[in-house]
Amino acid sequence: MKKILLSCVVLALIATASCKKSSETPKLIPIPPVEIPPVISNKKLIEVADFKIGAAVKVASLQGDASFASTVKSEYNQITAEYEMKMNFIWTADNVYDFSKVDYLINFAQQNNLAVHGHALLWYQSFPDWLKNAGLDSVAFENKVKTYIQTYVGRYKGKVRSWDVANEIFNDDGTLRVESQIQGRFKDPIGFVGRCFKYAHDADPDAKLFYNDYNVVLASGKRTAMKNMAIRFKKAGVQIDGLGEQFHYRISTSQSQINSGFADLASSGLLIHISEADCKVNVNDSPAYVLNDVDKQKQSDFFKNIAKLYNALPANQKFAITTWGVTDKSTWLRNSTNGNKEYPLLFDENYNKKPAYTGFLAGLN
């Protein structure tokens, strides 16, 4: 390319010199700009990343949407159930479990060489009604939960790579979430959560165990509470392997704030899981919103930034980046206010790769 440009310059100088000899005003011959085509990579996400690339999935989508299943098998190497591995979908009555959806998901994963991240054993919104209404004291309640965890984790021992043992127990300021089943029942809720980590570890000693929450990189109080809990567990001999940050953010979220919060989270030294990533473009939830190129680029920059952040982690802290869904047409955000005007993922409604995919791939590189 340099040789071509140099030749053009030489020709221009020769032409100019000829004009001088004939006493004419020198004329500069314009050199047209050289268009450099963009580098297009045919590599897939899982071919570039040195850690797992995960997606949240629904069994109905795996069964009934061939394009969904094909994209999962092609672009991802880890899956998480969007909701079908949560307690209220499995524990239908005392000593009664419905594992049919989980069995399907596990079999799909094994047939297609996909890892499985279990989500989630404890979540305040997933306790089944029969358990909440059983009138149990703290000892009886914990015994029930212990049996559930050990039955569940033990059933999939060696088949589920990792578990979110607990999900969303802290407020943004670091205080415990006020809810009836854990915070409202135990004098030491963190102690109860720690024992649940132990029950999961006893059922499958090889599984990686995580605490998962949202808004972590923006809320310093929540980060501090999570790190302090991990320190407490470690001192007590309770296994906790990693921390999950959901990464449900917007194109308007400050990248510098994300970066500094992420660095603070990583200072825990534990495995870090970007566990539920998506990026809202319709930041005002407007029913009149129209997806545009400017917002597509902002979303691309968001995904590129988080991939670069994650790549910069020490190798022993990299676990996975999981997007919360695969295609815009089935994102959980479309069930929220004006959600039909939301486009938060890497693939559009027709499974075409969006600029967000390109940005994410570039960040992984």
Score class of each variant (00 low, 15 high):
L6K: 15
C8A: 14
C8N: 12
A17T: 12
S18R: 13
S18P: 06
C19L: 15
E24Y: 14
I36A: 10
I36K: 12
V39N: 10
S41Y: 10
K43F: 07
K44F: 02
V48Q: 09
I53N: 05
A56N: 12
V57L: 10
V59L: 14
S61V: 10
S61Y: 13
S61Q: 15
A66I: 11
F68W: 12
F68E: 12
A69K: 14
E75C: 08
A81H: 06
Y83N: 15
Y83T: 13
M85K: 02
W91H: 12
D103C: 03
I106G: 06
I106F: 11
N107E: 14
A115T: 14
Y124I: 00
Y124Q: 04
D129C: 06
W130M: 04
L131K: 09
K132D: 06
N133K: 15
N133I: 00
G135D: 10
G135H: 09
V139H: 10
V139C: 06
A140M: 12
F141W: 09
G154Y: 04
V160M: 10
R161G: 13
R161H: 15
S162T: 10
W163P: 04
A166Q: 03
E168Q: 06
D172I: 07
L176Q: 03
G184T: 09
K187D: 15
P189N: 02
I190Y: 01
G191C: 08
Y199K: 06
Y199L: 02
F210Y: 02
D213T: 01
D213N: 06
Y214I: 01
N215L: 07
V216Y: 04
V217N: 08
G221T: 07
G221M: 08
G221S: 09
K222Q: 06
R223F: 07
K227Q: 14
Q239L: 05
D241K: 00
G242N: 03
F247H: 09
S252Q: 11
T253L: 02
S254N: 08
Q257N: 15
G261C: 08
L270K: 14
E276T: 03
A277S: 10
K280I: 13
N292G: 02
V294K: 12
V294N: 09
K296C: 02
D301G: 03
F302L: 05
F302H: 08
F302Q: 00
N311L: 02
A312Y: 00
P314H: 07
F319K: 00
W324P: 07
G325Y: 09
K329D: 11
T331G: 13
R334C: 09
G339D: 12
N340H: 11
E342H: 09
P344L: 07
D348A: 05
P355D: 01
P355E: 00
L364F: 06
L364Q: 01
N365W: 05
